[in-house]
Amino acid sequence: MSTLLEVSGVTVTFDGFRAINNLSFQIGKAEMRAVIGPNGAGKTTFMDIITGKTKPDEGRILWGDRSENLLKMTEAQIANAGVGRKFQRPTVFEAQTVTENLRMALKRPRSPFSVLRHRPDAQEKADIEALAEEIGLKDHLEKQSGYLSHGQKQWLEIGMLLAQDPQLLLVDEPAAGMTAPEREHTTDLLVRTAKTRAVVVVEHDMEFVRRLNCKVTVLHEGSVLAEGSLDHVTSNQDVIDVYLGR
């Protein structure tokens, strides 16, 4: 499997505190990965580095077939290169309908002139309907997004990211606050998504991670503590000591 993202020897220090410590990580083009670890392990900073929000003190991050240096890109350039991020709290336009949210997110020319002259066409309508079907909101296209359930808002935000056709999707605690049926649907959605692109899920819920049925990376004090199947990492004594035993 060819590598999409390669993080090598990355270190980040905040006011003398080493949040990321010589971290190395890689993921393939169509792969699901769960990232777990105690609070303060560096999970959020890890995502901040990949998306360009935080610049490391040292190390390198290579991206895509041409092994481009992600550290030389701005946040906007990284997003345009195909990195999408979903934060824990859904951020959708609540006064707009599901259709309008998905339409705004669709990948297309963004010049002021093209936006002013934009008229929805049959292809765009079909793309929006296909996206809505994929995320489970086809029956809610004309509903104002503020009236969706918490889980449905999460799915809509994932749909808005998918509309931008990312190669890598970073998802922060998608199961938090969901009902059991919503969690099941979210699992299915992420597993399907990982068949065509890379998906990194940061999650605390071990049962949700087990349902993802993927390789797991355990972070601790800014470094990779263990990596492998969930059964493999949860039987690791170091992981038990610093995370599972708490």
Rank of each mutant, 00 (worst) to 15 (best):
Q96N: 10
V201C: 06
R66Y: 04
T45M: 04
N21P: 03
K143G: 00
N80E: 14
F25L: 13
K55H: 11
E58W: 00
R197Q: 13
F208E: 04
N236H: 12
P120L: 12
V191I: 15
G40R: 07
L71D: 05
M32F: 10
G228I: 13
I36Y: 12
N213C: 02
E6I: 01
T217R: 07
D165G: 00
G136K: 13
Q77V: 04
E133T: 14
G136H: 12
R183T: 12
F17C: 01
V10T: 05
S145Q: 08
V200R: 14
R66D: 11
H150M: 13
D188Y: 07
R192I: 07
E227P: 01
L244M: 14
A226I: 11
L168C: 02
G64P: 01
L137T: 05
I158K: 11
P112V: 11
I36K: 08
I36N: 06
K107R: 13
S149N: 07
E31K: 09
Q26H: 12
G52Q: 07
K43E: 11
E184A: 14
F14V: 09
E173R: 10
T99M: 02
T97K: 07
I36M: 15
R117D: 00
A105W: 02
Q144G: 06
T74N: 03
L62C: 04
G64F: 03
L4A: 11
M206A: 04
R18A: 09
T187V: 15
P166E: 09
D121K: 06
T234W: 07
G177E: 10
T45Q: 02
S2K: 06
T54Y: 07
D127W: 01
N22F: 04
G42W: 10
M160R: 15
T45K: 01
F46M: 08
D15N: 15
A30R: 15
G59A: 02
G37P: 08
R183Y: 01
I240S: 01
M32L: 15
A81R: 13
P174D: 12
A175L: 05
L161V: 05
